[in-house]
């Protein structure tokens, strides 16, 4: 149906149009919406195309931008290809597509690897990451609240210490924590690693949430005080709900950090059955020939969790990243 047929409608074609509309799932206007006269095209076809297609310069810009972005992920494309092809094809070059065999054997083998079983390693990583994130969020927002709202002794000193820890490399706390965890009997345990991650993450989380809490209007808390709420009620019913967006940012970033961490597990987890996924990956290399397929499959499984989390909560991740360093 063209625009012209709308133009010459009498009542019978109206009816047709109407039934057509029902048959075609609402693709056409219903009778009473059909105007008496045909709509006058205010622009010609060539003008519309010219508008829809960017100018030559802009077109070139798009081509460059898309090319760069694609080149940027070529290494990851290679990783995916390697993970689903047999070793012989990988060594021949994953970019050769003819005679490609798709197999999930690498994933199966990586999952059940003898020295570095990814299945177990991923489970261990979850066991460490989830509590380390949840506890940091709760304790972080609790500690950030006084930093944002109250005066108390040593506040500036504590502030300085937090900044110092944020600048420190993780290696700097390894020796002290190694001895401390041995002392407490927590060395080579989930709990030990979780505690180290919590202590390490609290610094930036407190600073980040403090900056966010400073943006919540004071009047809301004063109104709540007048309404009769105690400090704890204010915290629970006003501050916590209002800081949800910041807490989501904290959750995503801290999750990524703990999940991806390699150095802390390397130092504090020594029993092979407790290895975390990033720690297990380098163990898959094999003796004679590097087992690219296994490494690729293991890498994909390990990185899938933070990457998916990033794609789902991209907005919070990016906003948090920017706020954490720029505020």
């Amino acid at each position: 149906m063209t625009e012209d047929s709308f133009n010459s409608t009498d009542s019978s074609t109206d009816r047709n149009a109407n039934t057509d509309a029902r048959a075609d799932g609402g693709r056409y206007l219903s009778v009473d919406e059909i105007p008496e006269t045909a709509p006058v095209a205010d622009r010609t076809w060539s003008e519309r195309i010219a508008d829809a297609v960017p100018s030559k310069r802009r077109g070139l810009k798009y081509v460059i931008a898309i090319t760069i972005a694609l080149l940027w992920i070529v290494p990851f494309i290679g990783l995916v290809m390697a993970s689903i092809r047999p070793l012989s094809e990988i060594i021949g070059g994953w970019w050769h597509l003819e005679g490609m065999t798709i197999t999930f054997e690498n994933y199966y083998q990586a999952w059940n690897h003898s020295t570095a079983p990814m299945g177990q390693a991923l489970r261990n990583t979850f066991i460490v990451t989830i509590p380390a994130v949840l506890v940091v969020m709760l304790l972080g927002v609790m500690a950030a609240y006084p930093f944002a709202r109250f005066e108390f002794p040593l506040k500036r000193t504590l502030f300085f210490l937090i900044l110092l820890v944020m600048a420190a490399p993780p290696e700097l706390v390894a020796m002290g924590n190694y001895n401390a965890l041995r002392e407490f009997g927590l060395f080579d345990t989930y709990m030990g690693l979780i505690l180290v991650h919590i202590g390490w993450g609290l610094g930036w989380v407190v600073l980040f949430l403090r900056n966010y809490l400073l943006g919540i209007p004071k009047e809301l808390e004063e109104a709540a005080r007048i309404d009769g709420a105690s400090r704890y009620q204010i915290f629970r019913t006003i501050i916590l709900p209002l800081s949800t967006p910041a807490l989501v940012s904290v959750a995503v970033i801290q999750f990524t950090w703990v999940w991806n961490a390699f150095f802390f597990p390397l130092v504090f987890m020594r029993s092979p059955e407790l290895y975390l996924a990033p720690q297990a990956l380098p163990l898959m290399r094999g003796r004679v020939q590097v087992e690219w397929g296994l490494i690729a499959a293991g890498s994909i499984m390990t990185m899938a969790v933070p990457v998916i989390l990033f794609l789902l909560l991209e907005r919070y991740y990016k906003r948090g990243m920017v706020a954490a360093v720029a505020d």
Partner: peptide, 11 residues
């Protein structure tokens, strides 16, 4: 009880 200039309603 108090009414604030910007009302301070809990958003």
């Amino acid at each position: 009880a108090m009414v604030f200039q910007n009302y301070a309603l809990y958003p």
